[in-house]
Amino acid sequence: MRLMFILLLPLLWSPLVASATPAFDAPPERSTDGGFTLNWETDTAVVLEQATGPDHADARIIYEGSDTSTVISGLSDGEYRFRLRAAEADDWADQATVTVEHHSLARAFGFFAVGAIVFLVLIGAILRGRPRD
């Protein structure tokens, strides 16, 4: 039994060794405001790439360095693919896909209208200026 444990030890150890290669830390799957934060775990400098198609044809590098997160914002509706690798490595170590689907404009203007009504009632109440009898 003890021998078995010693033999299995390297297997138990392996996830810790693997964390030396960069990996995304719980990337979001969806965004309704075109923005999110990507976090990753790494011991070295990384390269982060962003693309819109599955073949990464339009890929561009959006970060190179030792930070472990980046704030993405202002994306239009669509599917965005991110790949991560160590700066000195050639192979990509991890990837994540985030779907951006903004709130509908009907919903947005619905909230806008509610806000406008509350604001106008507020102005009205204050402008009357005197206690109501």
Binding site: G34, G74, F111, G115, F119
Partner: peptide, 25 residues
């Protein structure tokens, strides 16, 4: 901004429209 974060310049950015009166209130 137009190249990388186009929604930030959009006047019809839904979350931002919802935010306008929210922040005021």
């Amino acid at each position: 901004l137009m190249e990388e974060r186009p929604e930030l310049l959009s006047l019809l950015f839904p979350a931002a429209i919802m935010f306008l009166f929210n922040n005021l209130l």
